[in-house]
């Protein structure tokens, strides 16, 4: 047992911090109409898309924890990048055992298409596969509008790689992200695996890592303001009504991060409680991100309600990502059931 970051992992964080550097400024610029910034997407796509995929499978090696660290660090500053959703799609493919052609991955955006209206987050899904052709519709697909390739979850725990027939950009509560509705009309399934669950677990834990970053970023943002803003002749952070909210958010954030780190490790090492660990991580990370960003907004007072301010960007990222691949409520229920079945199998 040695649950501390290793040398390479500290390096990943350092590099990610450098890439995240101007994240918030880029985000604000994007909001005022600037085009998508090339940096750091360009570097991330060039150097980091093979992370946490074994060299034998064409990746560049490293552990799932490394990728979680990278994604968390980028998300602390809300760094606008499409890399996160791209790499999550790759990871879903890898986790499901689909072969990945990195030459194809180099060329354009991939997306992970899972959600269907009124369907539980991990299925059973209505999207069908017959004669190697895919039919159905997926909603809320991150950057699905830009993707050439979709990793699509299908009926009977299958998952495939295919090209969508059509994509329609949805409205997005998060102004820094794009979501689309994808239709598949007899699209050819290029590869199929019957372990969708394995892919969804990897993807979900990475969304949890992102939410941990969002939560931490929100707490940091709220704390910075609480030090700076004074009322009644003192920094508002000196009032416990303010300080305790932020401290609570920090505790929630740390809770989620512990669970996320463990879930990454459990998946990587094929541990039998990986599934349970992912449910715990996603439940708590969604909760922490929404709670922390609500608190950050609250401690800003009136200015937090303005479009030009920062807290709402965290809040909007939190509330949308909390809904991707299952919300708090659903993951808690899965975790509760897992606990019960563990107890009944013991007794």
């Amino acid at each position: 047992m040695k649950a501390i970051l290793e040398e390479e992992q500290r390096l990943v964080v350092e590099v990610a911090e450098r890439m995240a550097g101007n994240g918030l400024q880029n985000a604000q610029r994007l909001l005022s109409g600037a085009p998508w910034p090339e940096y750091p997407d360009h570097d991330l796509m060039a150097n980091w898309q093979g992370l946490a995929i074994g060299e034998a499978d064409g990746g560049s090696g490293g552990r799932l924890v490394d990728l979680a660290l990278l994604i968390r660090t980028l998300s602390i500053r809300l760094t606008p990048c499409r890399y996160i959703d791209h790499v999550i799609a790759l990871q879903a493919a890898f986790g499901a055992g689909l072969p990945i052609d990195f030459k194809v991955a180099d060329e354009g955006q991939w997306c992970l298409a899972v959600a269907e209206p009124r369907t539980p987050p991990f299925g059973p899904f209505a999207c069908r596969l017959s004669n190697n052709r895919i039919d159905g519709t997926k909603t809320g697909v991150p950057f699905g509008n830009r993707a050439e390739i979709a990793i699509i979850a299908l009926e009977d725990n299958r998952i495939a790689l295919a090209k969508p027939s059509e994509s329609i950009l949805s409205d997005s509560a998060d102004p820094l992200a794009e979501y689309a509705c994808l239709t598949f009309n007899g699209s050819a399934a290029e590869h199929v695996s019957d372990n969708a669950n394995g892919g969804l677990l990897r993807a979900t834990v990475l969304i949890a890592a992102e939410l941990c970053g969002v939560a931490q970023g929100a707490v940091d943002n709220g704390s910075a303001y609480a030090k700076e803003r004074a009322q009644f002749g003192q920094p508002i952070g000196s009032y416990q009504g303010v300080a305790h909210q932020l401290a609570e958010a920090q505790v929630a954030t740390e809770t989620a991060w512990s669970l996320t780190l463990y879930a990454c490790w459990a998946i990587d090492s094929g541990n039998s409680d990986a599934q349970k660990a992912v449910h715990a991580a996603k439940a708590k990370a969604s909760e922490a991100a929404v709670f922390s960003s609500e608190r950050a907004l609250q401690v800003h007072g009136g200015i937090g309600m303005t479009w030009e301010s920062t807290p709402h960007l965290y809040l909007k990222r939190a509330i949308t990502r909390a809904a991707v691949l299952g919300g708090t409520h659903w993951h808690r229920q899965q975790l509760g059931s897992a606990l019960l079945s563990k107890i009944s199998s013991v007794s």
Partner: peptide, 14 residues
């Protein structure tokens, strides 16, 4: 309500 409605509700306007 947002939590219940999942991603479709969060994507405003949809």
């Amino acid at each position: 309500a947002l939590e219940l409605g999942a991603i479709d509700l969060v994507l405003a306007g949809a």
